[in-house]
Design a protein around this nucleic acid. Structure first.
Lengths: 169, 169
DNA sequence: CCAATATGTTTTAAGTCTAAAGTAATTTAA
DNA sequence: TTAAATTACTTTAGACTTAAAACATATTGG
């Protein structure tokens, strides 16, 4: 039997974060809570994408990036946007090509560059998935008012900038 | 050559989030920014743990949970706290046992239950890693004042509760 | 008791991911 | 021009991850 991430906390057990949240520093508690939020939402989205559309979350992420780039994206651009390695993207795109959802061709201007774009089939599938995905995210954030979402968005922007400035070392 | 997650954005390319952030709904932008923050911090921590201590991030996460549970944790408790499947934990623990960092024994009260705990070696290693880890997190959050970290922490708590209430469906 | 059910863990198959090494095309610079 | 360096991508090895099935032990209801 699978754990079913969506129901795993039906009992009273602790999750990733709550084990720590007693005597720790604010920094650490915030980081654990960030992981906790992200994992929870991500696991729910993964499960629903699989169940409703038969696609993996990384596959969906690739299609989403390509949907926003009508001219296509190079492998490196894809890898930067998804924040994963180039080698990872190679495999993801390979599998989407097999399913006929994306196409890959060499850039005529630079034969090193592979340009990936949605096929008509891929665009159609993403068009069906996107509204559902948006609805799910909206439901999961439904407990917060717009003002709080905006403040959260702004604070995370500053956190992102702060984290980026500490990337090396 | 590897992408080196820590330096990948030295050029002016877009990342996961910024591709979307124009005409989208607040919900979606917030979600993408959440992924963005988490990935950035996670990739940095992963890279440094590997480089400084020769351990993977998931391995570190297991040790961190066990460090907080002196009596040990069952496989299911570990899986709930890490928010990953039971099957995943089996492999993680197997590899840590090979390295002598954790031990696993059957619970005498219930032979189905495997109780995992840190070995002395595992505890010693975690004792060296934890301060470094804490420092890294502190650096990455250094751009935010305590008050903002507190507000962020509180908002993410509400987001977590909201997301949890929408898990099914 | 004992069959059915539930619970805890492991196994399996397929996919995801990183880090490092390898290949190919382009650019740089002597 | 052309060797060296750079850039874009792929390959490789090993680890991570999920979902589903399989297995083992406990519990429950007859």
């Amino acid at each position: 039997m699978t754990l079913n991430p969506g129901r795993r906390r039906a009992n009273g057990s602790e999750d990733y974060e709550s084990a720590a949240a007693k005597d720790d520093k604010l920094d650490l508690r915030l980081w654990l809570r960030l992981i906790s939020c992200t994992s929870m939402i991500e696991n729910t989205v993964r499960r629903r994408l699989r169940k409703e559309f038969g696609i993996t979350l990384p596959g969906f992420d690739v299609l989403a990036q390509l949907d926003r780039a009508p001219r296509g994206l190079s492998m490196s651009e894809l890898s930067a946007r998804l924040m994963v390695t180039n080698g990872n993207v190679t495999g993801l795109v390979d599998r989407l090509i097999i399913r006929g959802l994306v196409a890959r061709r060499a850039d005529p201007k630079d034969q090193r560059v592979q340009v990936v774009r949605l096929t008509r089939k891929g665009r159609a599938l993403f068009g069906r998935m996107a509204p559902a995905h948006h609805t799910w995210i909206g439901e999961m954030m439904g407990g917060l008012k717009t003002g709080e979402l905006q403040r959260l968005y702004a604070s995370l922007g500053r956190l992102k900038a702060s984290a980026r400035s500490a990337l090396d070392g």
